[in-house]
């Protein structure tokens, strides 16, 4: 089973209304690049003008925040689950 990136509901309409997108093994950076290759409309929501992940976007690999792992270099294996989580909202 390939790795998958779960798409937050706010972004699913830019990803063909999919709740999850499969990506090949590699690292988190390659997985995100692969996601953008599949759905280019996601790019402006996830990356800033310099091509960096927008500063409020948190990425979790198997429920672990990649900032506390090897960040974008964190290894992605088949079966892994990547979550894209913006900061929380409301009260």
């Amino acid at each position: 089973m390939p790795a998958k990136i779960e798409i937050p509901s706010a972004l699913q309409r830019f990803a063909g209304n999919n709740g999850a997108v499969e990506v090949p093994e590699g690292n988190v950076k390659q997985a995100m690049d692969n996601l953008i290759d599949q759905y280019a409309d996601l790019k402006e929501h996830l990356f800033d003008d310099q091509g960096m992940i927008r500063s409020f976007v948190n990425i979790y690999l198997n429920d672990e925040d990649i900032r506390y792992e090897k960040n974008l270099d964190t290894e992605v294996k088949n079966g892994d689950v990547i979550q894209i989580v913006p900061s929380i909202a409301g009260g």
Binding site: P8, A10, S55, F56, P86, I88, A89, G90
Partner: peptide
């Protein structure tokens, strides 16, 4: 409000999508 449903404005709500 935040300009989009996908935002980083902690404590704020995008009403259309929440």
């Amino acid at each position: 409000q935040p300009d989009s449903a996908f935002h980083g404005l902690e404590g704020m709500k995008h009403m259309e999508s929440a």
